[in-house]
Design a protein around this nucleic acid. Sequence first.
RNA 1: GGGUCGUUAGCUCAGUCGGUAGAGCACCGGCCUUUUAAGCCGGGAGUCGCAGGUUCGAUUCCUGCACGACCCA
Length: 488
Amino acid sequence: MAEAELVASRREKLARLRARGICPYPYSYPRTHTTADVRAAHGALPPHGRTGTVVRLAGRITALRRMGKAAFADLRDRAGRLQLYASADGLGAEAFELFVDLDLGDIVGASGEVFTTKTGELSVDVREFTILAKSLRPLPEKWHGLRDVETRYRNRALDFISNEAARRAVEVRALVLRACRSYLDAQGFLEVETPILQPVYGGATARPFVTHHNELGRDLYLRVAPELYLKRLLVGGFEKVYEIGRNFRNEGISAMHNPEFTALEAYEAYGDYERAMELAEELVTACVGAVAGSLTITYQGRELDFSRPWRRAPLLELVAARSGVDVERPLPELVAEIERKGIPLPAPLRQGPKGKVIEHLLETCVQDSLWNPTFVLDFPLDTSPLAKRKRGREDLVERFELYIAGREVANAFSELNDPDDQRERFLRQEALRAAGDAEAQPLDEAFLRDLELGMPPAAGIGFGLDRLIMILADAPSIREVLAFPPLR
RNA sequence: GGGUCGUUAGCUCAGUCGGUAGAGCACCGGCCUUUUAAGCCGGGAGUCGCAGGUUCGAUUCCUGCACGACCCA
């Protein structure tokens, strides 16, 4: 039947309800239990059991099995599903007629005694029910739900109604956010909020979104990272701070990238990147525990083990071992060797800087093999303008990226607090920008001025929470963990 | 940006070696007082993604476009 006819049929029912003086959209329905409450209290009841307990439930009708003078319906609420039993005897002829005239998708309130059927199914023997919201559109197929990804994302509420996995991803996000906050709060971190609209963007290698403030008559950038503001709070004397919020990077959409994504950044004065590793292990295992209740989960059919301590491997060693390329050679020789080995290398990278070539090798040759949590240590100086030099190595910085299931989940450093060194790093970024690198970071004078006041040495870490949520929700794409993924 | 695959009823999917399409669910009518992917009987429902081309005839073949999935850059 054409969709319009299905809607028309439901609208006719709506009109009939109104004609009988029944409001199809009443104001409230105080319930006494959720479906899960009922299961918790009476789940062990044997077949043919009666409880004498009357409950009031509210939720959406997701199945309706009419049997003449009796009917069964599935009612679903936020906590689960429970069967309703309605009979002409129990409800009276008039109410029973209304019950069997319900449509799948209608939201109802129902009350009655909790009992079990002869097959042992926990049910409510409905003696009173109320339509709380008439549904005017047909639901997807009851067994398969919505499958087409495009249709699912364009009809996300319908997707949540019909797909358990889609609902679960939203819950996992909430569990992860809560676990992060409760861990950091317990550690004495202060949750802060810093500007999203920024006059100068910084803190990450990325292209920004630009917007305009009419009153000030100037362009502002949506932040690509909160990093520089959080460090200014360190200067101000806040020794342990974190922020959870949206970052915006003007780049493509893929299974791993969304232009707006949720980041967690945390800074702790007087620590270095060793401390950041400790924080990362504790924070992520807290999240895993909150979601899975165990440190071993399955991601995309493969076991993932979060047991500590996590593997720590220097970037240069990993790249050398996996690519077979000697990364200590000068750039031209390095490029030549990469091309000789047939490893794809985008043309612009041939000009360097060398750090970008090495990070490219990490992405193409190493990353996929980093399944269980792995800290990749000590990144090139020239791709890390906000990190402190590695003790004993002029060309490297104390920085790590955390990889889980082949994905970069976090990035951290011993934070650079030498204002003169920081200015030089910015100037090198400006030089790259002048040479055409649109992702190079702009020099931020306000930040430098605050650094000159003295910022304590600090550990800093940033997480891409969407990716962690993906892993914990067993989602193959970042879009699955966004309540409303972007559409073209 | 390139490659591969896909787009058919509200949903999940078949199918047409070129002759205007089917099933299940959902919907409508009938029977049915313990079903649970209820069952049985009957019925209605489609711009076969869009636009061109070839052809007597295109949903099917060809080209382009849109949107999507996966892979590569």
